[in-house]
Amino acid sequence: MSKPVLRVQDLAVTFTSTTGGLLQRRERQIRAVDGISFELNAGETLGIVGESGCGKSTLARAILGLISPNRGRVQWMGEDLTGLDEEALRQKRKQLQIVFQDPVASLDPRMTAGDIIAEPLWTFYPHMERLQVEERTRGMMKMVGLLPNQINRYPHEFSGGQCQRIGIARALALNPRLLICDEPVSALDVSIQAQIINLLRTLQRKLGLALIFIAHDLSVVRHISNRVLVMYMGQAMEVSAKADLYRRPLHPYSNALMKSVPIPDPELARRVRAESWLTGDMPSPFQRPRGCIFHNRCPYRINRCEADVPALRRMESGDWVACHRAEELDLSI
């Protein structure tokens, strides 16, 4: 693989939450993204997986500069995006695009499919010939598996899966180099999810895109990722090559996520999951556990986990993990 196109270093986003009335006004900090680092090569797919509230969408927005980070850097092709002004950042976004979770809600219901896909073209190339825009729009529709003769239809005339195809066509209209997909299939039927995952896989290979695919379910990212970043409460628990992660996860949290995926085999399901052992909920963001942030839900915790924060460290395999016990635990699937 070539050298990384995207380099994220120690990225952190903190939100301030204000509660109470005038007299008891209290400000509390929520560390939504808490020191995330990774690199992404051209043509590579990184899956980012974690439960809702783990900060994965905030991370995506911070990478695109839609939210300004409190700390850290986002380097795109060697250039630091966090230092750019509005206009320079806007120009960069031609290369960095995003597809959202809810395919229907993220499309303007009063615009036709063609207008939705062409809008970024008009925005960035206002002098482009009308015919040229239409040709490009029809080309994009074909590429994502829509019929070009549906160009004048409105979003409500399409199914959820087709709306997501419109969202993808729009994101790709400017020929970006990086595509971030934020839970692109979680609102879709299982049968349609597979269509969209296969489509993204094909497009990525064809266009040589760097792809970040965000999901809350490890089974969904498996078929598309080269590497997977497992996130929990704003931090990276594990960053592993796909082949390693799905054979032997290094972090107990990755293992828990894996065990939660329903198995479409009644006998196996009953045997494997006599009980789901990831008990309890994610702690409140205001009461972050000391030591390892996962320790209160971890079945493998030892005293050390309650006191020391495990650093994200590189294993011999080249995978990264933040767990004190990574060497001794065998979490083979």
Binding site: A194, Q195, V220, I263
Partner: peptide
């Protein structure tokens, strides 16, 4: 059944979609 992404089988193939 074929379109369910599953972890209990080793497979990197394309998912079967309807």
């Amino acid at each position: 059944l074929a379109s369910v992404p599953r972890l209990d089988r080793v497979s990197d193939d394309e998912l079967q979609a309807i």
